[in-house]
Design a protein around this nucleic acid. Structure first.
Lengths: 150, 150
DNA sequence: GCAATATAGTTGTCAAGGCAAATAACCCAA
DNA sequence: TTGGGTTATTTGCCTTGACAACTATATTGC
């Protein structure tokens, strides 16, 4: 019997589409949480401030790699956040090409404020997963990421 | 003893950043696979053709919702894929406002060709996960997605 | 030391996609 | 049936981010 067009369709979304949707929803939710707190920041801006708050000052390139963003986009993102007064470009001690991006007092204070939104969003996302499942999800995602990056 | 600036840092990337990076890498890998096959399509274009091939003809809005894309972006995406000859806009039988987007023969043929790239990419991504882990990863992601969407 | 190469940051350009407005058509209730 | 609200598609406008070119500085090989 001839069965044309018989692909192994699993009805499920493929991993690419699924992680894309999860990311979109996390971004949406976090930006909404921030807006509810009166903080008008986009997800990427949030990531920059978070990284600086968590890991401390670093160069623009290190920052760009840390949040997986293009260097050109980083320049303009730093412009925005510097204008808003949340960070400063300082000269790098060892490398005259590079910068040392550091949070201002206002940036530190903002992060303390945004931290709640961050926790709330992550908690909401993982609401239906127990601790063991959360750990496994994280583990699986990191293994997938490593596999993709070889 | 005073411990200023002691945030509960877990060293790990938060879920939002992690899924974002996974998605970026999957997109990158799939587009590279497609390019290696001589197919010059972007990830989103691929998603549209895949959805049509898997689920059959549907309206532009259904398509947009299925791949989580803005309606305006969908219009322009359909323009591109129609110009390339992979799909057709047909009038909708029941609803004169709507369209019935259907694959052309060329579109069907292209999907058969691209299917391999899709499988290869997913296999690469999940290379280090056994079947049980793959199922769990999928399950967790869908639960996270449902939690985020309420 | 010096030439060749690599890296940091900036800028211009472009495509993708989100949002809002406009138009057309549908649907429901009075 | 008709008026109000909703939905489908299209278009304009705008922001984000990728890529490439450029300058300045660092590093490496000889």
């Amino acid at each position: 019997m001839n069965t044309p067009y018989c692909f192994p369709i699993d009805g499920r979304d493929s991993l690419g589409a699924l992680v894309g949707q999860v990311r979109t929803e996390i971004v949406r939710r976090l930006e909404a949480e921030l807006a509810a707190q009166g903080v008008g920041l986009r997800f990427t801006q949030f990531l920059v401030l978070k990284r600086l708050a968590v890991s401390g000052s670093m160069s623009a390139t290190e920052l760009a790699r840390a949040i997986d963003l293009d260097g050109g986009a980083m320049t303009r993102l730093l412009d925005q956040l510097e204008t808003k007064g949340y960070l400063r470009r300082q000269p790098h001690e060892q490398d005259r090409r590079a910068l040392r991006i550091e949070l201002t007092e206002a940036g530190e204070a903002l992060w303390k404020h945004m931290h709640e939104s961050n926790v709330a969003t992550l908690e909401c996302a993982q609401r239906d997963l127990n601790q063991e499942e959360r750990d496994r999800l994280h583990d699986y995602l990191e293994r997938v990421l490593n596999a993709l990056r070889n």
